[in-house]
């Protein structure tokens, strides 16, 4: 830190990097500044909320499916704000293909459904661990959370795939059609 050049006074408030995830629409004329700015702040917030829904799902309204849908909505928001280049990818450095998320989610769900058999319990049985965490209090950890995590991943994969095929896929089709008309 100490070896850094002093920042010129005129540039002191310029961000050094993309401190929130980018959401800039590539087509300038289609940009909506309010939505872009809102999406930058809402995107992580909504993701955190989706994880909250996932965790409380066993005893309260929520669970893997609503959590996954809410997380999917975060990506939908970013897709609407940022256009096709952003919507379908989770962050610009961490690219996961939606089918992989779906496959992983399904795998986690099925394996956790079969796992109780190894402990001599029936398929889909669940166990509960209760422990005390200082300052937080009593925490109930239910093994069926794992199946919810599987569903959560699966649903995010589905929403991303929908964005990719029905969102940017249609945009691409439309662009190609427009290109053909403009061409020869």
């Amino acid at each position: 830190m100490s070896t850094r050049e002093p920042v010129p006074f005129t540039q002191w408030d310029e961000p050094e990097g993309e401190w929130t995830l980018p959401g800039a629409c590539p087509v300038r004329s289609n940009r909506t500044l309010m939505l872009e700015a809102a999406a930058r702040f809402l995107f992580p917030t909504v993701l955190v909320f989706s994880v909250y829904l996932l965790i409380v799902g066993h005893y309260a309204p929520g669970g893997g499916f609503p959590g996954g849908l809410v997380a999917g909505l975060a990506f939908v928001l970013r897709y609407i704000a940022g256009g096709e280049s952003e919507g379908a990818e989770i962050g610009s450095r961490f690219v996961v293909r939606p089918p992989v998320l779906m496959g992983l989610g399904l795998l986690v769900a099925v394996v956790s459904a079969l796992a109780p058999v190894a402990f001599g319990a029936p398929v889909l049985a669940s166990a509960k661990v209760t422990f005390e965490i200082p300052l937080v209090g009593t925490v109930d950890l239910v093994s069926s959370l794992v199946i919810d995590i599987g569903v959560y991943l699966l649903i995010i994969g589905v929403v991303l795939d929908l964005l990719r095929s029905l969102g940017s896929g249609i945009e691409r089709d439309a662009r190609e059609a427009a290109g053909e008309e403009a061409g020869p």
Partner: peptide, 10 residues
Amino acid sequence: EPAEVSGSGA
């Protein structure tokens, strides 16, 4: 088809 679009992406 749209489902196949994911195939070509994959």
